[in-house]
């Protein structure tokens, strides 16, 4: 069984939290809950209200976008990946669906805890913004690559 300290170790590998104090991460982990999903279970659906972000502790999941044309896997999450963090900040509905592809263990970080922690730690806020910017850039680049590969799937 993974203990809180192991979770902290894992959180440190997440780009957003790499430079944040261990004791703050421990607080973040403590205020979060650990949840398990079976393969095939959906963590959240595209269009759902977003209440929490997740960090994958163990297992894998698909990130799926639904367009009128059908579903498309736009990414995969594995240990150390953070899911759903953007909507947490912007208070928007989920832009994609996440589905477990193996036994999945996640750390569920509620919106309130997360925003509170950011508000308390200006440095964390900065680190988070920078990491977020990097993620968006990577994603955009990835999407461009995907688009080049399979243009016919996108309507």
């Amino acid at each position: 069984m993974i203990s809180l300290n192991d979770e902290v170790m894992l959180l440190r590998q997440v780009p957003y939290f790499g430079r944040i104090d261990a004791c703050k991460l421990k607080l973040l982990a403590f205020t979060s809950s650990r949840v398990c999903y079976e393969p095939g279970q959906t963590i959240f659906h595209q269009g759902d209200a977003s209440e929490a972000a997740y960090v994958v502790l163990r297992g894998t999941a698909d990130i799926v976008a639904t367009a009128p044309g059908g579903e498309m896997i736009i990414g995969e999450a594995s240990a150390g990946t953070m899911i759903g963090e953007m909507c947490l900040v912007s208070d928007a509905p989920r832009v994609s669906t996440v589905r477990a592809t193996s036994v999945l263990e996640l750390l569920r970080i509620p919106r309130d805890s997360f925003l509170r922690l950011i508000a308390d730690n200006p440095r964390m806020s900065f680190e988070f913004s920078r990491a977020l910017a990097e993620t968006i850039r990577d994603k955009a680049a990835g999407l461009a690559r995907q688009l080049a590969r399979r243009p016919e799937r996108i309507v």
Partner: peptide, 15 residues
């Protein structure tokens, strides 16, 4: 563990 996590927080903190 609790002291490590909570000692730094102001008493009225929602956590």
């Amino acid at each position: 563990n609790l002291v490590e996590i909570f000692a730094d927080l102001p008493p009225e903190h929602p956590f």
